[in-house]
């Protein structure tokens, strides 16, 4: 059974990955991530904020044609480093799980 600490770590990695693909604003990230994985929406923002405070994201404001400017998040070099570290650990973990389960070559 996946415990909440473990799930939080995975969400953290997903948040880093999604913002590494494209800069996103908070609501966009939360909406996208909750469509992909079963996640309690209210847990995403505190993670996003914590990672920003740790220097893994930068923020900048972008004006909109309608409405107030939006705050966008972009990955810093430190964030990119952290992400590759997480991805490496994650793949190693999955390899181990697949070996125990009897292998799943397609996933590699």
């Amino acid at each position: 059974m996946m415990n909440s600490q473990f799930k939080r770590g995975i969400i953290e990695m997903c948040v880093l990955k999604m913002i590494s693909r494209e800069d996103m604003y908070g609501f966009q990230l939360i909406e996208t991530i909750s469509q992909e994985i079963e996640v309690n929406e209210n847990t995403v923002y505190p993670i996003l904020r914590r990672l920003t405070k740790q220097g893994l994201f930068d923020t900048y404001s972008k004006s909109m044609s309608i409405g107030a400017p939006r705050k966008y998040y972009s990955l810093t070099s430190e964030g990119a480093l952290k992400l590759s570290e997480y991805e490496g650990e994650w793949r190693k973990f999955l390899d181990g799980v697949y070996r125990i389960l009897g292998g799943n070559e397609n996933e590699k």
Partner: peptide, 30 residues
């Protein structure tokens, strides 16, 4: 400000106040 934006985001998607507050989490729980 971030919560204000997120609140508007969910409202614009058609969610009512109660649903939005559930998605954002009760202030005491977050």
């Amino acid at each position: 400000n971030d919560y204000s934006d997120m609140y508007d985001g969910w409202t614009n998607k058609g969610f009512v106040d109660e649903e939005v507050e559930k998605k954002l989490g009760h202030p005491r729980s977050i």
